[in-house]
Design a protein around this nucleic acid. Structure first.
Lengths: 347, 347
DNA sequence: GCATTGAATGTAAACGCTTAAACGGGAGGA
DNA sequence: TCCTCCCGTTTAAGCGTTTACATTCAATGC
């Protein structure tokens, strides 16, 4: 019995009805064990693979999980997407699901693509990344009761949806404490203007740590630049470094910014970490190569995405479960870009 | 008329048959223009989105394109996947298709996943990356007449399938000529042991260029290491650099290797490009940050993947067209890691 | 005035699977 | 011998589209 393409081919060859074969393959207890074995074996030897369209139609589910590719500028500096997709794929395959990746066409909003994805039955649930402080995608999905998991969270977190996030507040607190212990008192924070929740949380973490340490000598200089505006970023860095009372330690919201700081510092004749300590966040590959090696935090995106995959499938399968909220602690990657504060903190 | 979920809802509301509505939405000329407009408008205002499962079943096609995530080690050093997926997504959405990304489960071969993907009707065609000199995936897909496009090609190229590749031979020839003009005569090539076609082609390109220049003074030292074996790689680099008659210019098969060379050279007290010129391939982000900046070639993966998307959909839609073969020329990115050969080429 | 045509729409049969409900037939009890 | 029950299997009705073919009806030709 070779090359059975449909359930019917298989059933006819076995002198059984398609119903029995379907049940047998599903492992239905109601079917006699011997029959189940016979069917399974026949299916295997015939190389039978169930047609997904038939199954989708009958079950009312696709077995797919969707994700909309974030629209990007021409340059793709980070490996976030690759790691995320890899991890998500791993998580999903472990739960028997597959990933469908939709791209927003020119001029179409990510939200519109998301809606289409679920309305057409392509996806049973979706994954969201890069959550803004207030996010229309979250609002829509919550309201329309589509299962989803967010990587990141809203600023106003009301336990009404699934999220998994990296504890950026904790990381920035940890960075501050480490630097403070090394004698640093004048801090700089380089951040972005876009209202992303992670920006807020990291900054809050830093500021809370400063407050709690209670040392009045500690100062913080916060400088912002638009996420994708290279000249503006350069200007912001210049402002931070040129300042009369220049910080001795700069925290950057993420590595890309930290690398910009390091470059600018080099060019300005400052040595790192002798004159200036710099700490980033993300642990992009370049962080290891930019001398003297950027100290940063690794969010273990791949592992996080894998978790998200599990979480999403679980949510799809039991939609009555309460929303899950998971905070992952990023790992400090200590390299050469931080050290003791310079002896003379001139100013 | 709000929230029509199915064609029937829509048809009933309009007092038409589902057939007419289906045809009208498809823009069938047989349907009266006025009816077509009426239907389109109703569909729009009802937010109707065709159910993909029904469509798949009726059409015998999914509208999806598949790709199997290459299984990877724990470290994900490059941004290849992210760029590729982004470009592919762009190419597909421009042709009205979507991407489904399958991951090979632990212990399952990529080929098995590929087979399942097409046999289940999930994908109408697939994309292959990282083609080996001889590749079972290509053999299988060719034989089973599944539409596919390969990013890369077999060593034995017989025009029987679609591929798009970066012209690595050309790049390595160009690199040689540039270095030769700068006075270099002793060359090193750091490559991998795995039988990937691109390895062969790049090396061939270099060797052909050397042959053709006809200068008997030119020497080439080829050293190989397994792709993912870090210690072995270090050893290979050490061999290349420690050699009594050390090369003055080293070409690395790709940036990751080139960066290893640069690190080792620094550690050995060699200055780049004063004592040694290094050229890579890929233009990974870290290439820009590793001092003095790695000279390399940019394969424009995102653009290539986009092309691949177009090509694949075209192939699916007219499967009788002759196989396409497209060679893209990588762009030289000149940075600081290459320069004039040292005056005394001691030996 | 009747047959013929063609435009516009409808009917119904797929497509391949799942599953509620019905069925057949043997074992066990009366 | 008949009835009941249960186990294993089948029947049949979907799921939402598409599309070959049939139908209707008005206009045209003779």
């Amino acid at each position: 019995m070779s090359r059975a393409r449909t359930l019917r081919d298989l059933a006819e060859g076995l002198n059984l009805s398609t119903a029995t074969v379907s049940r047998a393959l599903a492992g239905d207890e109601a079917i006699a064990v011997t029959t189940r074995q016979r069917v399974t074996e026949a299916a295997r030897s015939a190389g039978y693979v169930p047609n997904i369209a038939g199954r989708m139609l009958a079950r009312g589910r696709s077995g797919f999980v969707g994700m909309v590719l974030p629209v990007r500028g021409p340059a793709l500096v980070d490996s976030f997407l690759g790691e995320f997709v890899t991890g998500l794929g791993e998580g999903l395959v472990e739960r028997g699901s597959d990933l469908i990746l939709a791209t927003a066409a020119e001029g179409k909003s990510e939200l519109a693509v998301l809606q289409h994805l679920v309305a057409s039955g392509r996806a049973d649930g979706v994954v969201l990344t890069r959550i803004a402080e207030a996010d229309e995608r979250v609002d829509y999905l919550r309201e329309s009761r589509v299962p989803f998991v967010a990587h990141g969270r809203l600023l106003d977190d009301d336990q009404s949806y699934n999220w998994l996030d990296t504890d950026g507040a904790h990381a920035f607190r940890q960075a501050f404490e480490m630097l403070y212990a090394l004698g640093h008192r004048r801090f700089g924070l380089l951040t972005i203007t876009e209202p992303m929740t992670f920006r807020h949380l990291r900054q809050e973490g830093l500021m809370a740590a400063i407050r709690e340490c209670g040392d009045p000598q500690v100062t913080l200089d916060v400088v912002t630049a638009p996420r994708f505006d290279q000249p503006a970023r350069q200007a912001a860095v210049a402002r931070l470094l040129a300042d009369g009372s220049r910080p001795t330690a700069i925290l950057a919201l993420f590595d890309e910014l930290a690398l910009t700081v390091m470059e600018a510092a080099m060019r300005a004749g400052l040595t790192i970490p002798g004159d200036l300590s710099v700490i980033g966040f993300d642990n992009v590959p370049a962080a290891a190569y930019a001398p003297p090696g950027l100290t940063t935090f690794d969010a273990e995106i791949r592992k996080a995405a894998r978790e998200i995959g599990h979480l999403l499938v679980d949510t799809i399968e039991s939609s009555d479960a309460p929303p899950a909220r998971r905070l992952m602690c990023p790992r400090l990657v200590a390299r050469g870009s931080h050290g003791a504060a310079p002896a003379t903190t001139g100013g």
